[in-house]
Simulated scan of single mutants.
Amino acid sequence: MPKYTLLIYGDSAQWEALTVEQRRAHDAAHADFRDAAGDRVIGGQELEPSPNATTLRGSVTSDGPFLETKEALGGFYMLEAADLDEVLALAKLLPEVQAGHSGVEIRPVVEHP
Rank of each mutant, 00 (worst) to 15 (best):
R107G: 14
L79G: 04
V97S: 00
E71N: 01
A17C: 00
L94A: 06
T19E: 01
K3M: 06
E111L: 14
L7Y: 04
S59W: 10
H101M: 01
D83E: 14
R107T: 14
L88W: 13
E16M: 08
P2L: 06
L6M: 13
K3R: 15
E48V: 15
S102I: 00
T19A: 03
D32C: 07
P108A: 05
A91N: 04
G103R: 08
A17R: 00
V60F: 13
D35L: 07
G103N: 07
V87G: 00
P108I: 00
I106C: 06
E48L: 11
G43W: 10
N52T: 03
M1L: 09
L94I: 09
L47C: 11
E105P: 14
L90H: 13
E46R: 07
F66D: 02
H30P: 02
P51S: 03
G44W: 07
E96L: 03
S12D: 09
A13T: 06
A13L: 10
N52G: 12
V87E: 00
S62K: 15
E21L: 11
K3C: 08
D85P: 12
E80P: 07
L88A: 04
L79Y: 13
G74P: 00
T54K: 15
P2I: 08
T69G: 09
E105K: 10
H26S: 02
P108G: 04
D27G: 12
E105I: 04
R57N: 09
V87F: 01
L67F: 08
A99T: 03
V104C: 03
V41Y: 10
Q14F: 01
L94D: 04
E105D: 08
E21K: 05
Y9R: 01
R57L: 05
W15Y: 13
T5C: 11
V104D: 05
T54Y: 10
L7D: 02
Y9N: 00
D32V: 07
A91F: 15
T69R: 10
G38H: 02
G44T: 01
V97G: 00
P51N: 03
A31W: 13
A31L: 15
R107L: 11
E46S: 09
T19D: 03
P2V: 07
R40N: 07
L88Q: 05
